[in-house]
């Protein structure tokens, strides 16, 4: 067996979801390699050198990989795979992995397994279906397994190694059917929602975007990420990428604090793997209390300042 993990990065660092993907790969077999597509920035090379558990790290270098367009990566990756005899190809189940891997899967004529939560053996996996309302255990009959991994279900691997990174200069030309135009990324010093140990989210009960400042003080004290329910996003309080839930981000922190969130099924689907859930809501009948470990009935405009002060 030979496993290849496709790394996701932001041109500075390998993303934590990739580290979790490596851990999932190690549960299949220890013969595991990582492949990076990048313009060759030194930051990425240095970061990749530290990642533990890898037998080999390869970086395919081309200016075009500064933006990670699926078509460009597919072209280089399908070429790379011809030499590799890999039995498993893994990527994180993030928008990067979801965008890219089905193309590779179709190229290899195999049926991808999306978003695995558990590795039972080299061909048997568990994955959520119906937004996590059911769990499907399945076995792949394909020769090569193409898999995306739900990061929150696996601990990130350590960064204590001193790998050599083999850099391959790519001389490929690309057809320009897809061109990168721009990124509009939210700037924040806080951890990413899907990687944070603590997440605090606000819902419609926050009443407006300004009131999310009440969460910021607490988030700063706890080193938490800030999220929101779909209702809060739809009401325009906060940007789209803050949304936690079935159609937003799936999170599984050690502590999830839901403030002014009633607990719609679609929100619960995104948080139910959290270790502890705290709900703060003025409506004692709110469904969120059925899913929380600790519930506090109260006016969030009184509870939040008190919480920030006492932490």
């Amino acid at each position: 067996m030979k496993i290849l993990v496709i790394a996701e990065h932001d041109n500075k660092k390998i993303k934590p979801s990739t580290l979790c993907t490596i851990s999932a790969g190690l549960k299949i077999n220890e013969n595991i390699e990582m492949l990076i597509f990048s313009d060759g920035s030194q930051d990425i090379v240095s970061d990749a050198q530290k990642i533990s558990g890898l037998k080999k790290v390869t970086l395919i270098k081309h200016e075009i990989f500064k933006s990670q367009i699926a078509e460009d990566i597919t072209k280089a990756l399908t070429g790379f795979l011809e030499s590799g005899e890999y039995t498993h190809i893994l990527a994180p189940s993030t928008t990067f992995g979801k965008n890219l891997l089905p193309r590779i899967s179709a190229h290899l004529d195999v049926q991808q397994i999306s978003d695995i939560m558990n590795v039972l053996d080299h061909e048997t996996f568990e994955r959520p279906i119906y937004a996590g309302n059911a769990v499907c255990k399945l076995k792949s009959k394909d020769k090569i397994k193409v898999i995306t991994v739900r990061g929150t279900c696996f601990e990130p691997c350590k960064k204590e190694s001193e790998n050599t990174v083999e850099v391959i200069d790519s001389s490929l030309t690309f057809d320009g059917k897809v061109n990168f135009v721009k990124h509009e990324l939210s700037e924040s010093d806080r951890p990413e929602l899907t990687a944070a140990k603590i997440v605090i989210s606000g819902g419609r009960g926050m009443q407006n975007g300004d009131n999310f400042k009440l969460l910021e003080g607490i988030a700063d004290k706890l080193g938490a990420a800030i999220g929101a329910s779909r209702a809060a996003v739809d009401a325009g309080f906060v940007p789209n990428d803050w949304q936690v839930g079935q159609t937003g981000k799936i999170v599984a922190p050690d502590l999830y604090i839901a403030v002014g969130i009633s607990g719609a099924i679609q929100h619960i689907a995104g948080i139910k793997d959290s270790k502890f859930i705290v709900a703060i809501n003025k409506d004692e009948e709110a469904p969120i209390f059925k899913f929380s470990d600790y519930g506090l009935v109260g006016d969030l405009f009184e509870v939040l300042p008190a919480l920030e002060q006492k932490l």
Binding site: I129, C136, Y294
Partner: peptide, 17 residues
């Protein structure tokens, strides 16, 4: 290509306080 072995309920959360 995929054989479904079984479909289960997700693990339940313990009731909170």
């Amino acid at each position: 290509r995929l054989e479904i072995i079984e479909v289960n309920d997700p693990p339940e959360r313990k009731p909170g306080i």
